[in-house]
């Protein structure tokens, strides 16, 4: 028998014979109390894919603008290095941080946690990684950044003639793979192993 408490209303729920295939909900407020994530191997391959998409997106051009006969290509590296100016660098850094850097950090943490786990051993740093993951995850706003790219493209149409390149596609694929990874990964699956140990 397992005793769990609802994190959103405090009700204690007794679970007899926990089945990891089931989702357990709070009887009072309907909060999901227990819901196991995907298999570690699936999450790991999805996160690795996300990372590969991101690296590809960095080296490919995002878009080309045409003005007065000349054309300019923009890459992710350009977008990162040329953003700050005249004191509004705070906006640029904040956007880049929660839209791109944090999703990247979160994906790297999943990989750092799950690689040793898939060889069935736990490292000392695993607990620290898990805590940082739980702390940072709510601030990773990849899906909002994705919509912002779409809106920017629509707005840019009014300003300049431009063509989108494969870099944008890979960046969107990165965001999708990122989103799948964080939905599949549940840190409680790993904490549970510590709980059983003690």
């Amino acid at each position: 028998m397992l005793n769990k408490a609802c994190a959103e209303c405090g009700v204690i729920v007794e679970i007899k014979n926990l089945n990891t295939k089931y989702t357990y909900k709070c009887p009072r407020c309907n909060y999901t109390i227990v819901s196991s994530g995907e298999r570690f191997s699936y999450i790991l391959s999805m996160s690795a894919t996300a990372l590969l998409f991101f690296i590809s997106a960095c080296f490919l051009p995002l878009m080309t603008f045409e003005i007065g006969g000349s054309s300019i290509s923009v890459t992710v590296i350009d977008a990162i290095t040329k953003m700050g100016y005249e004191g509004y660098w705070i906006i640029s850094i904040l956007s880049l941080y929660v839209g791109v850097v944090l999703p990247l950090v979160v994906i790297s943490l999943i990989i750092l946690i799950l690689v040793p786990r898939s060889f069935n051993y736990s490292t000392d740093s695993e607990r620290a990684y898990l805590k940082v993951y739980t702390m940072l995850r709510p601030w990773a706003m990849a899906e909002v950044y994705m919509l912002a790219i779409v809106v920017s493209a629509i707005k840019l149409k009014a300003v300049a003639i431009f063509t989108l390149h494969s870099g944008v596609l890979f960046f969107i694929l990165f965001l999708v793979a990122f989103y799948a990874s964080i939905i599949w990964f549940n840190p409680e699956d790993i904490w549970q192993k510590y709980e059983i140990q003690k």
């Binding site: 350009d78 906006i91 880049l96 929660v98 950044y145 912002a148 809106v151 840019l156």
Partner: peptide
């Protein structure tokens, strides 16, 4: 954060 991201992306790409 949508509009903030849009401003940051637009200014970053267009201005520079």
């Amino acid at each position: 954060m949508l509009d903030i991201f849009v401003v940051a992306i637009m200014v970053g790409i267009v201005q520079f």
